[in-house]
């Protein structure tokens, strides 16, 4: 039970809990090793700094924590939380896997959708969850994203989306693949309605999500050091039998090749999104 509570920080966060951390380091406080600078960083310090190491390394973040970081206080209203994966193909082991992941992550699906205020600008917000089957897109994720864009068209709202995904969810076979077409069509309608869509690519954004709504935004932002690509690096190495260039598929590399507008560290994301939303609110008259 204790373990499950540890893995479920969402309730604590939703109550507006642990935003500030104790300053001094307690003896025996849990620490996390930063894979970049290799130092042991007290967990409380990471939490106080939105899971960013003092060296600038961005740890993976749970979707609820991200919403807490980006949305104005108490402004997030979740939608479509009833939409969950079923097992349409009777795929071996899929049902059990989903159940296990639900308990461990405290989430029902790999994306959380809703409306929110960001810097007092109203928008639709979706945040994908890496702790739920690595944010893989099955029918439920596709349906939720599509419904959110349709809602945004109807209410003439911009969409802000944080992507993290290993790609399409293979346990739902062709139905997962078709979600790429379905979400893309919904994004196109939103775009054709003259509305703004900002995607923030976080670590990792790959496969079918990269090849659909992640790369279809008007403005594509990314977190520093995030893996962004279509095919997996290991698969490419095996296929081409060549070693990969330095920084391959890191957001900095992808920006250099022209597919990302800007890399924004977490500390700046809310400010940046607020500015962008304000500049596109359609009310500016000189």
């Amino acid at each position: 039970m204790a373990l499950i509570n540890f893995l479920k920080p969402r309730n604590q966060l939703e109550e507006g809990g642990r935003t500030a951390a104790p300053v001094q380091r307690d003896a025996g406080e849990p620490e996390k090793k930063c894979p970049n600078c290799r130092k042991d960083i007290p967990v409380s310090r990471l939490w106080a700094n939105n899971l960013v190491c003092p060296c600038g390394y961005h740890f993976r973040m749970k979707a609820r924590q991200r919403i807490h970081m980006i949305a104005d206080k108490n402004s997030f209203h979740e939608m479509y939380s009833n939409v969950k994966a079923d097992d349409p193909l009777n795929f071996p082991g899929y049902k059990d896997k989903v159940e296990t992941v639900r308990v461990a992550s405290g989430e029902e699906e790999a994306v959380i959708c809703g409306t929110a205020m960001i810097g007092r600008q109203k928008c639709c917000l979706f945040v994908m969850e890496s702790y739920f089957m690595m944010g893989s897109m099955g029918s439920a994720v596709g349906e939720k994203i599509t419904m959110l864009f349709e809602y945004a068209v109807y209410h003439r709202l911009p969409v802000v989306g944080f992507t993290v995904s290993g790609g399409a969810r293979m346990q739902e076979g062709l139905l997962s693949l078709m979600q790429m077409a379905k979400t893309s069509a919904a994004v196109k309608r939103h775009s054709d309605a003259g509305l703004l869509y900002i995607a923030v690519l976080t670590d990792p954004t790959t496969g079918g999500v990269t090849a659909s709504f992640a790369m279809e935004a008007d403005i594509i932002l990314a977190e520093p050091g995030a893996t962004v690509g279509f095919a997996g690096a290991r698969v490419i190495e095996q296929t081409t039998k060549k070693s990969l260039p330095d920084g391959f598929q890191k957001s900095e590399f992808v920006m250099k090749h022209g597919f990302i507008d800007s890399i924004i560290p977490r500390s700046n994301q809310k400010k940046c999104l607020t500015e962008l939303l304000k500049m596109h609110d359609g009310r500016a008259i000189i």
Binding site: M180, A181, S184, A185, V187, K188, R189, S191, D192, G207, T210, A211, S212, F213, A214, M215, E216, G229, F230, A231, G232, V235, I236, T239, T240, K242, L244, P245, F248, Q249, H257, G258, F259
Partner: peptide
């Protein structure tokens, strides 16, 4: 499948597919 190689990634394989999905829909 779409080719998986360094050059294909550098030139935006994911973006190219995404754009087709989006544009073909209308």
């Amino acid at each position: 499948g779409a080719y998986c190689g360094v050059g294909a990634e550098e030139r935006g394989q994911g973006q190219a597919i995404a754009e087709n999905l989006m544009e073909m829909s209308t």
